[in-house]
Simulated assay, not measured.
Amino acid sequence: MTASELILISIVIPTYNYGHLLPRALDSVLGQMANDVELIVVDDGSCDNTNEVLATYATRCPRLHAIHQANAGAAAARNRGIREAHGRYALLLDADDELLPNALDTLRSVVKIKPEAGMVLGAQLSVFPDGRERLRLASPVPVASPRELTRLYLLQKRISISHCCSLFRRDLLLQRPYPEQLRNGEDIPVFAYLLVSAPVATTDVPLAKIYKHADSLRHSRDKEEAYALSIVHEVFEHLPVECQSLRKRYAAQRYLSLFRAALNAGDRAQARRFYSKAIRLNPSQSLRWSYLSKALRMLFGG
């Protein structure tokens, strides 16, 4: 058996201009490295000191595999790392976050008990800019049909999936790569596919600290409608036939999100157009009071 065949978990860290934070992520992994773990960092065309940081760490950890590529976005960096990896499972750690001690031991125990799992969801500590921390437990995932799981994840938002505190079966990630034309929301199609493709295991042990940034709440409205429809297409492109009946409802939900964003930006003309499209796609969803009240205030100048 070769060394690569012994790898259970491949930790993939995509990074772009995070040289000042990358050591925190690397140290959190190196503190729990073992023979069944590999560490891959994909530098997505950084122009800061990331290269120097990686060179320094490579002298301390010869098993760190650093990949440098021209800037192509987080999705492309994740895909590259997944292709280069050897593990049965992949943990995708963002460069500005960190694993908690014993995270890998916890994941080993879970997959030993449930080796058929395609995904393991763990708890996380969310760290806010003011230093506050909040524990978020893993979402319970029922044994249900692909359609019901898709509904709970996309429409009801009852299932939460995040990088850093989740473990994914690598063969499934190779079957449904991250859509590289999307620069945000690219994880939604992948998570939806994983959810319906194999059983899900959960643990309430916190696996990672995930740092929240104030700028993460800002989203560009450039070509926002085309972008939202691209996400809808990517999500349903790889889902089973029984899930396709949810496509219109999910498209309506995306339009309702566009409606809210347009209202917040003071663009009432676009808000009216987006709300009209949402109603045509799914009247019952669009006429919920949380949306209807905003639409009425918009129409009557409230």
Rank of each mutant, 00 (worst) to 15 (best):
K212S: 09
R158Y: 05
A85Y: 00
A192R: 03
S197Q: 10
K157W: 08
A85M: 02
K223M: 09
F191T: 06
V42D: 02
E116H: 07
G122N: 07
P142K: 06
F128H: 14
S46W: 13
A144V: 10
N264K: 13
P62A: 12
R88M: 06
P179S: 08
L104Q: 01
A3D: 12
V196P: 02
S10E: 08
I7K: 04
A144K: 02
D204W: 06
L167S: 03
N79S: 11
R249Q: 15
C243R: 01
V42W: 00
F128E: 14
L54I: 14
L229E: 13
L104A: 02
A269M: 08
R280D: 14
G131E: 11
L99M: 12
D27F: 02
A201V: 03
I13H: 01
N17P: 09
P240H: 12
R88Y: 03
N35F: 08
N184P: 00
R158W: 02
E234C: 13
E237V: 15
S46N: 08
P283Y: 14
L207V: 09
A75L: 10
L229G: 03
I188H: 05
G185C: 04
P189S: 04
S160G: 06
C47H: 10
R108N: 07
P101A: 09
A261N: 11
I188F: 12
I82W: 00
A66C: 15
Q244I: 09
L26M: 13
E148I: 12
E5C: 05
E180T: 14
G266C: 11
A138M: 05
N264H: 12
A138Q: 05
Y18D: 15
K157A: 15
Y153P: 04
L195P: 04
P14L: 06
S230V: 03
I210Y: 03
